[in-house]
Simulated assay, not measured.
Amino acid sequence: MKLLPIITAALLTTASFATLAASEISASEANRSNLQSMGTIQVSNITGSPDDALSALQQKAMEEGASHYRVIGIDTPSDSSQQRANAEIYR
Rank of each mutant, 00 (worst) to 15 (best):
Q42V: 10
E24A: 12
Q83W: 12
S23P: 01
A85F: 07
I7L: 15
A15S: 10
S67Y: 01
A85P: 08
Y69P: 03
V43W: 09
S23H: 11
T47D: 12
A87H: 04
S33Y: 02
Y69F: 15
L54R: 12
R32F: 05
P5V: 10
A53F: 05
I6H: 06
S80C: 03
S81L: 11
A30S: 10
I46Q: 07
N45D: 13
S37V: 01
A9F: 14
I89G: 00
M38Q: 12
E63M: 09
M1L: 09
N86V: 03
A27E: 13
F17H: 09
R84Y: 09
P50C: 04
S81G: 14
L11K: 02
D75G: 13
L3Q: 11
S33P: 06
E24M: 12
P5G: 07
E88I: 02
L12E: 03
L57N: 05
T8H: 00
E63L: 14
T47I: 13
I72K: 10
D79L: 06
D52P: 01
T19R: 08
I41G: 06
S67L: 08
R70T: 03
Y69G: 04
I72T: 08
Q82H: 09
G73C: 00
L20V: 02
G48T: 05
P5I: 09
N34P: 01
E63N: 14
G65M: 09
A9N: 04
M38F: 04
A18G: 00
A15K: 01
I74L: 14
K2L: 12
S16M: 12
D51V: 08
Q42S: 15
N86Y: 13
Y90R: 03
I7R: 03
A21E: 11
S67C: 00
H68S: 08
T19S: 11
D75K: 14
Q36D: 02
I74M: 12
D75R: 13
M38R: 11
A30L: 03
A27D: 12
S81Q: 10
R91P: 00
A18N: 06
T13M: 13
A53N: 05
